[in-house]
Computed example of a mutant assay.
Amino acid sequence: MQFPNDIQTALLFDRRVDDLEHIVREFMRVEGMRSGAQFNVPEAKPGAFYRLFGGDELMLTFEYLDHPANMEVFRPSLTSAVTGILCPDIRERLMRNRAHILINVSHGVLGNSPELTRLMATIGRPMEGASLPQFVRRLEIAALASRIALDHVPAQAVHWVQSDQLIPGEKFDAYAGAPPPGPLHIHPFLFGDAAAGKVGIRTFGARHFVGREIRIEPSTLPWAANYETILAFLRIALVKNGYVIPDGDTFGPEDGSLSYRVTHLPAEEGDVPIFVLKPLLHKAFGFVADDYVPRERVIDDRAPPLSLMPEDDEAKMDLVNEWREKRALAEGIGGRFEVRAKGSAPLPPAPPARPPRGIGGRPVFGRKGL
């Protein structure tokens, strides 16, 4: 499911916690002041479990469990090098786990079981909460509820399930403060040969925003620099009027300081589709790929040199139309679209401007062969 309906976070403590009711009441107060949302409490077991409903059809549960969490749940996250980088003593923290609080946030009252998903698909109805804005709201509410709980009782660690990340309790506030998608929501699993200085990234969590995970093959670039580019790629896709960079195209900031090529790969068996980002240029680290095409090779896509265009008139028109559509996408987010010619030969001159053909001096649009 692209937009998981159930967002869960687990707060792990090295002591008994007796503040669950205060945490719930404080969440209701803060969220009410922040957004005007009102919640009722249809189910409560004092000090142990509270179910809230309201605030645009949101369902929240707060559950206190007076025993250690199941360590097996954290095994995938513990295999991630980033987990160790973020919290070198994470295993010791988990061993000190004495109790935990589970916070769940979902939309609607029906839940999201596989059986329900199949039923809704059969009758042609979308699942509740199956939109990006609703998904982002669930993420924000789960983060807010977790931050409020941590204000009451410091936690050893937080398990953010959506991206399968283990975060030190004292660092969670900084992670949760960034709007989605940010470091809290996109887990960079590292791979490659760290000893040789070549590390790549495979994300977990990007699929929930753009339907695919993202991969950058190992290179000499620092993984953190590549990770920043992944977040930039996601921002381009999700900003107002945003779009996913088309297959085979490149993207980068207006200052030309970096450039990455995007390839769309279909899902392999047992996996999900992938966006592959290939670094072509990163000036800050002196990185230039062999197949990078410099800005000096930019051509005017509105009047391209004829020698660089397909010979077939229909193919030529298709290419010009494709460029026009891509230019509109880029300009829709305040960007710029460029076409560059590969190779090193001198660029041929652009064709001379022609006056528009028409009838009585008026241009004719939308017709071929005139």
Rank of each mutant, 00 (worst) to 15 (best):
R75D: 02
D173T: 09
G108P: 11
F365R: 13
N70C: 01
T250Q: 07
A10R: 13
L308C: 10
E43Y: 10
F251Y: 04
D14E: 14
G200D: 11
P46L: 09
G177I: 00
A232P: 00
G36K: 12
K171D: 15
R297I: 03
L116M: 09
T117G: 04
R295Y: 13
I90C: 05
H100V: 03
F53S: 08
M127T: 07
P273F: 04
R261L: 08
E213M: 11
N104Q: 14
R327I: 00
M309Q: 14
V17A: 07
H264N: 08
Q165C: 10
I148N: 03
T79S: 13
P181K: 02
T220W: 05
D300K: 01
A48T: 11
M95Y: 08
N321H: 11
Q156C: 00
G36E: 12
F13H: 13
A143H: 09
Y50T: 09
A289D: 15
W323N: 00
R207D: 02
P88W: 10
T220P: 03
M59V: 09
F275K: 01
R98Q: 12
G248N: 09
R91S: 10
A289W: 11
Q8G: 00
E43P: 00
L20P: 02
P266M: 03
L280R: 06
G169I: 03
F251T: 01
A350M: 07
P349K: 07
M1L: 12
G343N: 11
F74S: 02
G111M: 09
P305G: 01
R340P: 10
D56I: 09
A44C: 06
V272D: 09
I201S: 05
S77E: 12
E311Q: 13
I148Y: 03
A130S: 14
E92A: 08
Y64N: 10
P352K: 12
I201G: 08
L370P: 15
P310D: 05
W223G: 08
T250W: 00
L94N: 05
P273L: 05
I299H: 04
V136Q: 11
F365C: 01
E269T: 14
V30W: 01
L12T: 02
S106K: 12
A178Y: 08
H185Q: 14
P179T: 03
L139Y: 07
N70M: 04
A353E: 14
H282Q: 07
D290F: 02
D318H: 08
L60K: 11
D255E: 11
P222W: 13
I333W: 07
V320I: 14
A81M: 10
S344P: 00
H208C: 04
D164P: 00
L258Y: 15
R125S: 11
S219A: 15
N70V: 04
L238Q: 03
S257D: 12
Y227V: 02
P348L: 10
T263D: 11
Y64W: 06
N104C: 10
I23H: 03
R357L: 05
W223F: 15
N97F: 04
T122A: 15
M28P: 01
L234M: 15
V244Y: 01
I299K: 02
N5L: 09
L281Y: 01
C87V: 08
D89F: 01
G129N: 10
L102W: 02
Q165D: 06
P4R: 06
E268I: 05
T61P: 12
